[in-house]
Simulated assay, not measured.
Amino acid sequence: MSQTQHPAAPADRYGTAGPAGGSARRGGPLGRGAKAAIAAALTAAVAGTAWFATLRQADDPVAHDMVSFDVLGPEEIEVTFQVHMPVGTTATCTIEALAPSYAQVGTLDVPVGPAQTRTSAYEVTVGTSQEATSAVVAGCTPTAP
């Protein structure tokens, strides 16, 4: 019976054996310093994002949400929306009624606040030049006290 011999693997192909017989590279391809640098960069990115969000909130303290709309007929649409702003703040919200082509067929500037809570709901009727099929809150801007 003949024995089959396998060629030996090059010595540097798989690294050198460490004291316990394992690979000389224990922490994977990145060293401890590189992992610490990545962790520091991720922490800085999260902190930067939080700081940016805080500044944005300070610059634009009024937010809005569209709740619903109801087409009342060919010349009006009823819109319900919420406004989120600090207690005591006043703002003006612009509501737009839209045709199927997304053309604006009605608009209304609605003064809101000052509210007693951070979130308040409003319901308005917008007159239209033709039947609207949707409505949006185009934006809300704070007004001077």
Rank of each mutant, 00 (worst) to 15 (best):
Ala39Gly: 10
Ala39Ile: 12
Ala40Lys: 10
Ala40Ser: 12
Leu42Cys: 10
Leu42Pro: 00
Leu42Arg: 13
Thr43Ser: 15
Thr43Pro: 02
Ala44Ile: 00
Ala45Trp: 09
Ala45Cys: 08
Ala45Met: 13
Val46Phe: 07
Val46Thr: 15
Ala47Leu: 15
Ala47Ser: 14
Ala47Trp: 08
Gly48Thr: 13
Gly48Val: 08
Thr49Tyr: 12
Thr49Leu: 14
Ala50Thr: 12
Ala50Ser: 11
Ala50Ile: 14
Trp51Asn: 12
Trp51Gln: 15
Phe52Leu: 15
Phe52Met: 13
Phe52Asn: 11
Ala53His: 09
Thr54Asn: 06
Thr54Val: 08
Leu55Glu: 13
Leu55Val: 06
Leu55His: 11
Arg56Met: 09
Arg56Gln: 11
Gln57Trp: 08
Gln57Thr: 11
Ala58Val: 03
Ala58Lys: 10
Ala58Gly: 12
Asp59Cys: 07
Asp59Arg: 15
Asp59Thr: 08
Asp60Leu: 13
Asp60Trp: 11
Asp60Lys: 11
Pro61Phe: 04
Val62Tyr: 07
Val62Asp: 08
Val62Thr: 10
Val62Leu: 07
Ala63Ile: 03
His64Val: 10
His64Trp: 15
Asp65His: 09
Asp65Lys: 09
Asp65Cys: 05
Met66Phe: 14
Met66Gly: 10
Ser68Val: 08
Ser68Trp: 01
Ser68Leu: 00
Ser68Asn: 07
Phe69Arg: 05
Phe69His: 14
Asp70Leu: 02
Asp70Ser: 01
Val71Trp: 01
Leu72Pro: 04
Leu72Arg: 03
Gly73Asn: 04
Gly73His: 01
Pro74Ser: 14
Pro74Tyr: 13
Glu75Arg: 13
Glu76Phe: 00
Ile77Gln: 03
Ile77Cys: 03
Ile77His: 03
Glu78Ala: 04
Glu78Ile: 00
Glu78Asp: 04
Glu78Tyr: 03
Val79Cys: 07
Val79Gly: 05
Val79Glu: 07
Val79Ile: 11
Thr80Asn: 02
Thr80His: 01
Phe81Asn: 05
Gln82Asn: 09
Gln82Ile: 00
Gln82Gly: 06
Gln82Ala: 15
Met85Lys: 04
Pro86Tyr: 05
Pro86Gly: 04
Val87Thr: 14
Val87Met: 05
Val87Phe: 06
Val87Gly: 04
Gly88Lys: 05
Thr89Pro: 00
Thr89Glu: 08
Thr89Tyr: 07
Thr89Cys: 00
Thr89Lys: 01
Thr90Met: 06
Thr90Tyr: 00
Thr90Trp: 01
Thr90Ser: 11
Thr90His: 00
Ala91His: 08
Ala91Cys: 07
Ala91Ile: 08
Thr92Met: 09
Cys93Val: 10
Cys93Leu: 02
Cys93Trp: 04
Thr94Gln: 10
Ile95Asp: 02
Glu96Ser: 11
Glu96Ala: 13
Ala97Ile: 00
Leu98Asn: 02
